[in-house]
Amino acid sequence: MTGRFSVSNLGARYGRAVVLHDVALPALRDGEMLGILGPNASGKSTLMRRLTGEMPGPGDILLDGRTQREHGREGWRRAVAAAPQTPPAPSALMPTELMWSTARALGLALSDAELAARIEGIFDELGLGAVALSPLATLSGGKRQLVGLALALVRNPTLLLLDEPTSALDLHWRLAVLDLVRRRLRAQGGLVVAALHDLDLAARYCDRLAVLHEGRVLAAGCPAEVLTPDLLARVYRVEAEVSADPEGRPVVRALRAIDPGKGD
């Protein structure tokens, strides 16, 4: 078997508006991370919702040789966990309570002590230990986004889906979160699909990239193949220079926005 995860012919629509057309993603091997790039409204979040299974539609999503349907609702829920872009709501709930109720509502087979240890370990890695028992409403947006990630991690999924996991984070945590995700892949295997805004982070942390534009995949492959000045001009409408860092990964320097009137 070449890959653990592949996606082909994926479609999605809201009412009559088709938002994903025949999307195919690069196949992933164990321990790999796929970055989904694309400007706003290109279909990244919709793609994520198709992958979580919360949105129906045509297409084949294959994980470990079985389709999403063959996994069944329960099986998919066990194998796949997502951190949506919206962080957990600012309620009086404590992060620990939210983690606990998630684990129990989804029926994770862990004793109280095991569950507490797992939650504590995740909180320590994400710097949430000090706010583990504070109301979510008192946490910053960045901290709440980290709680959102923790909610996905506590389920210990085979496939981890991240929708803009670093959008509310400061520079330190942007890197720290992606480091953590990579570390987890190295240590225990598994797969990650992350929708990302930041091209350099995507190039640095992902093994494969796919670029969405108006619901279609315009380019897919390894970062150096995908991130070219031509593509950036077409998809992001910017004039950009692409150089390589010492390890050969592309580094993007956007120069200026291409005049909207003259774009395609």
Binding site: R49, T52, E54, W76, A81, A89, L98, L106, G148, L161
Partner: peptide
């Protein structure tokens, strides 16, 4: 009660869990 508690974390999360 577990589901209702979980829902206080927001609808987006609950939906992503297939609830």
């Amino acid at each position: 009660v577990w589901l209702l508690t979980l829902l206080r974390g927001g609808e987006a999360h609950a939906r992503s869990m297939g609830i």
